[in-house]
């Protein structure tokens, strides 16, 4: 038996995992009955369904031929996710300028084409631009600088 569709196999596993977690946590909620459903009814039902579907998709991966998975670029993914996370982590404590710079920096790491002067310039321009539009133009209550 070999996996004919890696896509389906992995997807199936993910669905299975979500289903199991859903069931595990959901079992603590009250079920109620079909005519008086409690808060646990749908979670258990849906998690169970997801589990079965995950199993089905994974099972099918042994039978039906699928597309190969395109190459995964780990660096862009981690850098971009990291950049978004960094923004969230810094915006309240350190303000908009720092957050924008953090993102610009991480984005520069994400791609091979960076040119440092460009990066610095764009960080500055972006910060000013954002301050202009969001804080002054739209009046968003965003902290600009550290204090």
């Amino acid at each position: 038996m070999r996996i004919r569709s890696l896509q389906d196999f992995l997807a199936g596993l993910i669905f299975l995992a979500f289903g199991i977690v859903g069931l595990w946590i959901g079992r603590g909620y009250q079920m109620g009955s079909a005519s008086h459903m409690g808060p646990g009814y749908f979670p258990v039902l849906l998690s169970g369904g997801l589990l079965l579907l995950g199993a089905a998709v994974a099972a099918r991966s042994f039978v039906v031929e699928g597309q190969p998975i395109e190459t995964i670029g780990w660096r862009p993914v981690l850098c971009i996710a990291g950049a978004v996370f960094a923004f969230g982590a810094t915006i309240e404590r350190f303000g908009l300028v720092v957050a924008v710079c953090a993102v610009t920096l991480l984005m520069a790491v994400a791609t091979e084409e960076r040119r440092w002067p460009e990066v610095i310039a764009s960080a500055v321009v972006m910060s000013l631009f954002c301050i202009g539009i969001f804080v002054f133009g739209l009046g968003e209550p965003l902290k600009i600088w550290v204090f």
Binding site: I80, A83, A99, V103, T104, M126, C130, F134, E140
Partner: peptide
Amino acid sequence: PAVLIFCCI
């Protein structure tokens, strides 16, 4: 980067 920053904001 601009697009991503707009998303974040």
